[in-house]
């Protein structure tokens, strides 16, 4: 397994596409998590109400960096994590390289395992990048806006980091699964992003406001609302009706089940299917 993991790592580390996704994540976090708030606070504080100023100060302070990194960019970051899964698994079909790799020697299960290990490694690095970016941004904000330098506890940071990794690997696994099902990155993007932005972002929000209990409960079975719930319960993001009624444990469990199911089905597809 070590050899294939090294091979996959070499491919991933040198991939300009993954570096681009990493850069996009940083830009999204900077823009939505810090940039706009910092601009308002530093350039036109007189236009803000005291409540707004307090809220911005709280978000920009180092004490909130872990929550910012975990949840503030929300769905856009999760979409980028989905893209990472497609890039690592689906690109092989575009380049027709999967068959070439399968002919080299390792079993198909080993190939899948190696790709999954590297996917997890890349996802953890990207989450780390977000946390480092958020920490640096919050420290800069503290210096420029005269905010307190108090940092969150190591336990809070670790919990937020673990939650961010769980959400990221779930979405990345979703990308991997769709790539394997469709054998084409473009269709995986189309289906996955449509699901993320139409169903998770809009439809589930509407359904959660339904008067029928059974409909209101429906979103709690999907990864998006559970990701929101996990972020909300750890102090990040803006929350939702579903988030308010779903505990962290349940949310984490649902995400873990989705992640394992996606990887299990993906592995079965790769191992059993003809590669024509």
């Amino acid at each position: 397994m070590i050899g294939p993991v090294r091979g996959e790592w070499l491919k991933a580390w040198r991939s300009p596409y993954l570096w681009t996704v990493g850069l996009l994540m940083v830009l999204v976090l900077l823009a939505r998590g810090y940039g706009l708030d910092w601009f308002l606070m530093s350039q036109s504080p007189a236009t803000l109400s005291p409540a707004n100023i307090a809220s911005y100060k709280q978000a920009l302070a180092p004490a909130a960096f872990a929550q910012q990194a975990l949840g503030n960019p929300g769905g856009v970051i999760w979409a980028l994590e989905f893209v990472v899964g497609v890039l690592i698994f689906g690109s092989e079909y575009g380049w027709r390289t999967l068959a070439a790799m399968l002919m080299v020697g390792p079993s198909r299960a080993t190939v899948f395992g190696a790709k999954t290990v590297v996917l997890a490694g890349i996802v953890v690095l990207l989450v780390l990048l977000r946390f480092v970016t958020a920490l640096a941004s919050s420290l800069i904000s503290a210096v420029t806006l005269d905010l307190p330098f108090r940092l969150p506890s190591a336990g809070d940071v670790a919990t937020a980091f673990a939650a961010a990794c769980l959400i990221a690997i779930t979405y990345a696994s979703f990308g991997a699964l769709l790539s394997l099902i469709f054998r084409r990155a473009s269709i995986a993007y189309a289906v996955g992003l449509t699901y993320l932005f139409v169903f998770e972002d809009r439809a589930f929000g509407v359904i959660a406001k339904s008067s029928a209990q059974s409909l209101r409960d429906l979103p709690t079975g999907f990864p998006g609302p559970n990701s929101v719930a996990l972020v909300h319960n750890l102090g990040g993001g803006t929350g939702s009706a579903v988030a308010a009624s779903t505990g962290s444990g349940q949310a984490a469990l649902v995400l873990a089940v989705y992640c394992l199911a996606a990887l299990g089905v993906g592995c079965a597809i790769l191992v059993r299917r003809d590669e024509t």
């Binding site: 294939p4 070499l10 040198r14 080299v104």
Partner: peptide, 16 residues
């Protein structure tokens, strides 16, 4: 996006 050499390094890693 990889060089010819790096492509072969990937194959070498895969095949131990």
């Amino acid at each position: 996006y990889l060089s010819g050499r790096d492509n072969l390094r990937v194959v070498a890693h895969y095949g131990d």
